[in-house]
């Protein structure tokens, strides 16, 4: 009796599996299609695009649109390409990610291992930064940046991003350290380690997965930000997202779609690379928190 029914089960299993794969492949195609269109069209001369077939491969391959998007295209009033704005974004993202990650880790450490009266209230208030609609804070932030003399500068953007990233980084690290055995901290205290020694020697070496998660999260969010970038930047601190918008809107005369496509890919490239390089750890880090806790 059991043998045939097992057979049926196996056959069903194969069928279900095939179905799952077909669906997954369909979804993958669906998601990859826009990227394909962008890449393909960024490598065509403009008249090939005008001829109409967006999905066709280039008849004549060219990297001219990429070079133009990078260094000569008209952005707003000046023909600089995206290069200076890309640099602005890098100068903004790297310190903002570093500051918010380090402070988030310290917050998580204090909130779980050096509990104090009202620590949960403090944590709850920090979480607000995750959920607050940023439009609400635009005007007060502009005022404060003005008072600090940071209005329209890259450090000003760094400050804003670091502050509003803190909610999420604190949340990540707090939840991760919550599952970290407190006895290790006690043992280190008996061994005579100081507050920062415990953090650096005991907690940080075990924080790899959550650091990766936090860095990817922060990097992606800050790099892709448009609202703060367009609100708080001036001519020489414009981040790449805003510059891309200017590129698309400011071309006089013909719309150079191939340059726009190339520019969009350039703007997206860093987040793509960060995700491809460390995405594996990202998933693993999220899992680690989930399973251990």
């Amino acid at each position: 009796m059991s043998a045939p029914s097992q057979d049926v089960a196996t056959r069903n299993g194969v069928f279900v599996r095939a179905l799952v794969y077909v669906l997954l492949i369909l979804f993958a195609v669906y998601y990859l299609l826009p990227l394909y269109v962008m890449v393909v069209n960024s490598l065509k001369p403009l008249d090939e695009i005008r001829q109409g077939n967006m999905l066709a491969l280039p008849q004549q391959w060219t990297i001219a649109p990429w070079l133009s998007a990078w260094s000569t295209a008209q952005i707003g009033v000046s023909p600089t390409g995206l290069k200076p704005y890309f640099l602005n974004s890098v100068l903004m993202v790297v310190p903002a990610v570093a500051i918010s990650t380090v402070l988030g880790a310290l917050n998580g450490y204090v909130l779980t291992k050096w509990r104090f009266k009202g620590d949960n209230i403090v944590f709850g208030m920090m979480l607000l930064a995750c959920f607050i609609p940023f439009q609400i804070v635009l005007i007060p932030s502009a005022r404060i940046l003005g008072l600090l003399g940071l209005a329209g500068t890259v450090p000003g953007l760094v400050l804003i991003h670091a502050i509003y990233g803190l909610g999420f980084t604190t949340l990540f690290f707090r939840n991760y350290y919550e599952a970290f055995p407190t006895e290790l901290v006690k043992a280190a205290q008996i061994d005579g380690a100081s507050f920062f020694q415990i953090f650096r020697r005991i907690l940080l070496p075990s924080s790899g997965p959550i650091i990766v998660v936090t860095v990817i999260w922060q990097f992606t969010n800050i790099w892709n930000d448009f609202l703060f970038g367009s609100s708080f930047s001036s001519v020489d601190s414009i981040p790449i997202t805003v510059a891309l918008n200017n590129l698309v809107n400011s071309s006089t005369g013909v719309k150079e779609y191939n340059v726009h496509f190339a520019g969009a890919i350039l703007a997206a490239l860093p987040t793509l690379i960060v995700y491809i390089v460390s995405g594996r750890y990202f998933v693993r880090g999220l899992m680690a928190g989930a399973v251990k806790g």
Partner: peptide, 25 residues
Amino acid sequence: AMVFQSYALYPNMTVGENIGFGMEI
């Protein structure tokens, strides 16, 4: 000196480093 129920060994250090951590500090 204290021995904990869960042993509380520092996971990122070797046995030798665990034993020597207090002296190192």
